[in-house]
Structures are given as structure tokens and as C-alpha cells.
Write a protein that binds this DNA or RNA. Structure first.
Lengths: 187, 187
DNA sequence: CGCCCCTGTGGCTATCTGCCGCAGTTTTCA
DNA sequence: TGAAAACTGCGGCAGATAGCCACAGGGGCG
């Protein structure tokens, strides 16, 4: 049923792979691109109906890509996804034709929900078994912390600064958390 | 460029008055409404080209007003303004036809800029770029809450349940102002 | 009408956060 | 290479916050 093609455009290979898996298991036929050119080529070739686009593509700006993709596939639904969200870019994205805008971290169900939201063209019983279960706040916080921590090469002081929280507080959070790592949870 | 009619819709009389003065001195012909009905009436009568709309109008939702205003004055440019800004509501606002979305507090020049800018809203040059810093934890939390809240059509109990937090806690969080995107300069 | 679910509110306690300080270790760089 | 700068771990304290309970009112429904 679900021959719904979905193009993921993200220069973060790890993230793209994880998301691809998660969405694949939810009934999408996923292809991924890691830069704008690749994205254009794949879009031309596969005419995907859905697209998950990272705002920050290397030095390129994902926003520019939105109209291009829509020119290639008029009915494409573009979901912007970014770790550096802001209201200004969200406004821009929607103005340029994005269907929705989410900030990382997200869970795959939220992505699916956003993609299918308002979509009438699918007999979407197949795709939507996505139970509406947003991340609990705690987990969202934890994942975000981990993301930034990694970005800071484990530097706690720097991470705390970027997160706008006290170093001591970060320390305490990190120390009391059950350090379970599951790099490929798609849930 | 001066006989441009501008309608301010805000139930906060003080704010509206201050803004009206500021915009008046900048060459607009300002009229103000403090609720939806008044806004509709004034729009019909004056056919303003510009509109500054508060997201929270008493118990009414400013978002609903956007399409109505546009039906009355097709070329109207609506700027959404809110003290409780979030990406989720920004996305909604733009989807419904708002031209831009700013968060209070805001200075009059920014309002003017937003109103006048963007006859070339898809003009490819003026790209906002992503913040260099990740979302602060508080901000991330706020955005996530807003998104889920939107998904739940404003149902607080339901939202709290989905987020795995106490309803009372959610209520308290919501009653507070969002965290600013830029944790620097003015307040 | 009762039933159910929503909302706003106040109060209590346990926990968390921000902030300070201190000591020891690594990194930077003149 | 030695000092300055930055990071880390930790304890403590006051004030903010969360969880939890209870109560009152609103609104839809059979």
C-alpha cells in the first residue's frame, strides 16, 4: 500500500540514518540526500511526495531549496526540521511553502504526524498507526542535552552555557541520570 | 507613503495606545480595536491596508480572524504580535495568511519593518539564518509544550497527560511568559 | 438530573535550581 | 615552562518549582 516516497535531506548522516529507519518502519519508502544537489537529483528522479528537510545544509540554506523542490514536484509536502530553530526561520519556512516546521529533537511519530497532517490524498490507515504520544518533557530535555553535549565534545561548562543553564545544574542532571544509551531507538 | 491605514487589534488598551502613537508618528493612520467584533466592523469601514493583530484576544483566538480580515480586504497585510510567542503558533499564523509574526515586547521600528517588508516575501535574497546556538532548555520546553498544546486544541488536561506532567504544573508554566530567543539585550 | 471532563485556584511539602565558594586538574599561550 | 585561564567535582544555602490534593464552577450528555 504505502508506496509513499519520502526524501530526507540532512547533512548529519547519523541523524538521517536513524530517521530513515524509523520512517521506513512506519511505511514510507525512504531515500536520503546529504546536500542540495543530491536532493535536487533525487527529487527529479523519484518525485517524492514527502520531504524532511534540514534547515542547515552545510553552508547552504535549506530554505532556498523549498521552492525548488516544489517546482519539481508540485504536490510535495516539505517538513522543515532543525536543531537550531527560531521563530524567524519558522516564519520564513512557511512563507516559502514548507508544510510544517519542527525542532530537533523530535520523535518519528511527531514527524509522521506533521507530514500527514491535513493530507487527504492517502488512504492513510496504513501509515497512521502513529499513536499520539509526544515525548515526555523529561526525555525531550535529556535528548537535547545529549545533543548539545556531543556538539561540545563533552565539555560541561560550554554545554551549560549554550543551554542557558547553570553548570552545577547540568552536572547534577547528568550525574543522576541512568546513563542508558540506545543510539538507534526509533520510538 | 503616509495615508496608509493601519488597524491595531489588541485587548490590552495600554499596549494598543502606545503602539498606536508610535506608529502614528511614523506616518500611519492608525485605528484601534479591542475585540474581534470591533475589528471586523472597522475593517469593513476603513479597509485598512495594514493590521497588527494580537494572538490572544480575550477568549477569542486572533488566528481565526486572519482569514476573515483577508476576506474583507484582500490586500491586507496582517502582522501577528504576541507575548506568548512560539514556533507552533507562528507556523499556524503564517499558514493562515499572516504576513509576519513577532513577539512582544517589540519596538515600533520592528513592527514597521515587518509591515512594509516583503512585497517580495519570496524574494530570494533576504534569508534569515539560523541561530548559532541551540535552543536553551527552557525555550525547548516551551516550544514543545506549545506544539502539543496546539495538537490538543488547547486542552490543558490532555496536554499535561501526554507530556507526562501534572496539570497544575502545566498551568503554571503556561501562565508565565515564554523565554526570549535571544537571551541578551533589552527586556 | 447525575455523570464526566474540563478549568482556575490555593496550600503543602519535597525536590530542584541558581549561585557562591573551594580545591584539584587540564589546557592555553606568551 | 610557568602562569593564567578554563574545566571539573562537590558541598551548602535560599528561593523557585513540581507534584499532589482538594474544592468550586462550567458545560455537554443521556
Amino acid at each position: 500500500m504505502s508506496d509513499q516516497q519520502l526524501l530526507i535531506i540532512d547533512d548529519d548522516a547519523t541523524f538521517a540514518r536513524v530517521l530513515a529507519r524509523a520512517l521506513g518502519s512506519r511505511g514510507f519508502e525512504v531515500i536520503t540526500a546529504s546536500n542540495a544537489d543530491e536532493a535536487r537529483a533525487l527529487t527529479r528522479r523519484h518525485q517524492p511526495r514527502y520531504c524532511v528537510l534540514d534547515l542547515k545544509l552545510g553552508d547552504e540554506n535549506g530554505l532556498r531549496l523549498i521552492p525548488e523542490l516544489q517546482a519539481l514536484v508540485p504536490e510535495i509536502r516539505v517538513l522543515l526540521l532543525t536543531g537550531y530553530a527560531s521563530i524567524a526561520t519558522a516564519v520564513e519556512a512557511i512563507k516559502r511553502g514548507a508544510h510544517d516546521y519542527l525542532s530537533k529533537p523530535v520523535d518519528a511519530d511527531a514527524v509522521v504526524r506533521a507530514l500527514l497532517d491535513g493530507d487527504t490524498s492517502t488512504g492513510d490507515d496504513e501509515l497512521v498507526d502513529a499513536p499520539e504520544a509526544p515525548l515526555a518533557l523529561r526525555r525531550l530535555e535529556w535528548e537535547h542535552i545529549q545533543r548539545v553535549l556531543t556538539e561540545c565534545d563533552g565539555n560541561i561548562s560550554e554545554t551549560a552555557r549554550r543551554l542557558g543553564m547553570h553548570r552545577r545544574t547540568l552536572q547534577r542532571k547528568l550525574s543522576k541520570h541512568p546513563v542508558r544509551e540506545r543510539p538507534d531507538s526509533d520510538d
